[in-house]
Design a protein around this nucleic acid. Structure first.
Length: 384
DNA sequence: ATGTCC
């Protein structure tokens, strides 16, 4: 019995999980269609935080019979983890000053006696020590937050969370390692598929493990600096990776695994985040959103927010939290107004039955990059 | 996103 096979020219299906009132840039949808036209592509699922990326959309899960490294991008293994933390008092002003320098890597030899190494079980993946224990730039952060609303009491209790509890939220990835892995591919094959998927996946898996280790090291560094005990994460999902699933390659770029996992969907540095129970099916490529999603490009955000906001109001947010960020440009690029409303993203996930909110986390202190002195900042920027 | 383009 011969089964009818589709001609290779038929593009994959594209589904975007956002309500009509949600703002999705047409450029991002166009990128989804471009991806759908790639050889071997089966289905593209756009999450409600969908926005344009460099060549490929961010906030998308893309299934194909062919592995395309560029669809995952350079920050292989990037993800968000949540660690419970116990502190006697949580005064943002006092705690912000105690955050360690998370731009300085942990050196296995020089910092051999750093207690953060206790989270290391086994070898450092790929033997890669460059940048280990650092947060990076862009949308990455380490945040001390307080559990705000409890929206699913039973599920929150299972996670050991109650209103008022403190958590560390860590968003970072594989730093230079993932970038090196993608570059090794693109130098030879550009945006083409991986000719040896197993070889790419072996290196990819190391970057995924490195990212997870990096999040643990960062949480341990902060816990120790704040006088608390390091803990295991209660949530840790990676949103840039390839998963081999149902005999296909499921690429996630800014999309978290949504099949029965708990996921922290990041808000902004000035609004709550949502911990959700995800239950996304095949139509959504088993994925959920990873955050609020950019509403403005970095360039637009810098231009608009430089005239709209003062540095002071971005460092002290509407929810009363502090942002540690010695880089003014990054502060403007990452301002809450550069992002979509997290409530709308969550509402879209709920409406499409992809996730159920469990708790909100409200920022107290968000670390972006070391807080340099004003004089140093002026020298760096070379003006005024 | 990134030891990135001065």
């Amino acid at each position: 019995m011969s089964s009818p096979s589709l001609p290779a020219s038929v593009p994959a299906t594209v589904t975007v999980f956002a309500s009509p009132t949600s703002w999705i840039e047409s450029d991002a949808v166009a990128q989804c269609r471009q991806v759908a036209a790639l050889d071997g592509m089966i289905h593209v699922a756009g999450m409600p935080d969908l926005h344009p990326g460099k060549g490929a959309p961010i906030g998308a899960a893309m299934a194909s019979s062919v592995l395309y490294p560029f669809l995952v991008g350079s920050d292989i293994g990037c993800g968000i983890a949540v660690f419970p933390i116990t502190l006697k008092r949580a005064v943002p002003e006092k705690l912000a000053a105690r955050f360690p320098d998370l731009d300085r890597p942990l050196d296995p030899e020089r910092d051999a006696d750093d207690p953060a190494w206790n989270v290391l079980a086994g070898e450092i993946p790929a033997g890669h020590t460059e940048g280990l224990g650092t947060v990076g730039r862009g949308n990455h952060f380490v945040e001390l937050a307080r559990v705000g609303s409890v929206l699913d009491a039973a599920h929150a209790a299972r996670l050991g969370l109650a209103a008022g509890d403190l958590v560390l939220v860590v968003h970072t990835g594989s730093r230079g390692l993932g970038e090196r892995i993608l570059r090794a591919h693109t130098e030879r094959y550009g945006a083409g598929p991986a000719p040896d998927p197993e070889a790419y996946l072996a290196r990819h898996d190391e970057a995924v493990r490195w990212g997870a280790l990096n999040r643990r090291l960062l949480a341990a560094r902060v816990a120790h600096a704040l006088g608390a005990a390091p803990t295991e994460p209660i949530v840790d999902e990676c949103h840039n990776l390839v998963e081999v699933r149902d005999g296909h390659y499921l690429h996630r770029k800014g999309a978290a695994p949504g099949d029965g996992r708990d996921v922290l969907v990041a808000g902004t540095r000035g609004t709550p985040s949502y911990l959700v129970a995800a239950h996304a099916g095949p139509e959504a490529n088993h994925s959920v959103a990873h955050g609020a999603g950019r509403k403005m490009s970095r360039g637009d955000a810098l231009r608009r927010n430089r005239v709209k906001h003062t540095v002071e109001e971005l460092r002290r947010t509407p929810v009363g939290s502090l942002v540690v960020c010695g880089d003014r440009q990054l502060l403007f690029e990452e301002a809450p107004s550069a992002y979509k409303r997290i409530e709308q993203v969550i509402a879209d996930l709920v409406e499409h039955r992809l996730a159920t909110p469990v708790v909100t986390t409200v920022p107290l202190v968000t670390y972006k990059t070391a807080d340099v002195g004003v004089a140093t900042e002026r020298r760096k920027r070379g003006r005024r």
